[in-house]
Amino acid sequence: MEVYADYAATTPVKQEVVDKMMDIYAVHYGNPSSIHSVGRNARKHLDDSRRSVKQALGAKQNEIIFTSGATESNNTAIKGIAYAQRYKGNHIITTKIEHHSVLHVFEQLEKEGFDVTYLDVDHQGLVQLDQLKEVITEQTILVSIMFVNNEIGTVQPMYEIDSIVADSNALLHVDAVQAIGHLDINFHDFNIDAMSITAHKFGGPKGVGALVVKEGTPLQFLQLGGEQEAKRRAGTENLPQIVGFAEALKLATEHLNENNIHLMNLKNQFLVSLQERSIPFELNGSMTESTGHIVNLYFPFIDVETILTLLDLANIYVSSGSACTAGTTTPSHVLVAMYEHDDRAKHSVRFSFNEQTTEQEVKYIATEIHKIYHKFKEDI
Results as ranks from 00 to 15, higher is better:
M1T: 11
V3Q: 07
Y7P: 00
V13Y: 11
K14P: 04
V17W: 10
D19H: 10
M21V: 08
I24K: 08
Y25N: 11
V27A: 09
H28G: 03
Y29G: 09
G30Q: 06
N31K: 15
S33I: 06
I35D: 10
V38F: 09
V38R: 12
R43L: 14
R43E: 14
L46G: 03
D47Q: 13
Q55H: 13
A56G: 04
I64C: 12
I65K: 04
G69R: 07
A70R: 07
T71I: 13
T71A: 14
T76P: 02
G80R: 00
G80W: 00
A82F: 07
K88N: 03
G89F: 02
I93P: 06
T95Y: 02
K96M: 05
H99C: 15
H100G: 10
L103W: 03
L103R: 11
E110H: 08
E110C: 07
K111F: 05
G113K: 13
F114V: 10
D115T: 15
V116R: 06
Y118C: 06
Y118L: 08
D122C: 04
G125Q: 02
G125N: 04
L132R: 10
E134S: 13
V135S: 07
T137Q: 03
Q139T: 07
T140C: 09
V143N: 06
G153D: 03
E160P: 02
S168H: 04
L172A: 09
H173P: 07
D175L: 03
H182G: 05
L183V: 04
D184P: 07
F190P: 15
D193L: 06
I197E: 11
A199L: 12
G207F: 13
V208I: 13
G209E: 06
A210E: 05
A210K: 06
A210H: 09
V212G: 13
V212K: 12
V212W: 05
P218W: 11
Q220F: 13
L222A: 12
L224Y: 10
E227A: 10
A230N: 15
A230S: 14
K231C: 14
T236M: 11
T236P: 01
N238R: 15
L239G: 02
Q241W: 07
V243F: 02
L249I: 11
K250I: 01
L251N: 08
E254T: 12
N259W: 11
I261L: 15
N265Y: 02
N268C: 00
Q269S: 12
Q269E: 05
F270W: 08
L271M: 12
L271I: 06
R277M: 08
S278A: 12
I279A: 05
E282L: 09
N284T: 02
T288F: 02
E289D: 11
T291M: 10
G292Q: 04
H293V: 02
N296G: 00
N296I: 01
P300C: 05
I302W: 06
I316P: 02
S319T: 10
S320M: 03
S322C: 13
A323N: 01
A323T: 00
C324I: 05
C324H: 09
G327L: 03
T328H: 05
L335E: 13
A337W: 11
E340L: 15
E340A: 14
H341Y: 14
D343F: 13
A345G: 01
H347D: 08
S348F: 07
R350F: 01
E361V: 03
V362S: 09
K363G: 02
A366G: 06
K371M: 09
K377F: 09
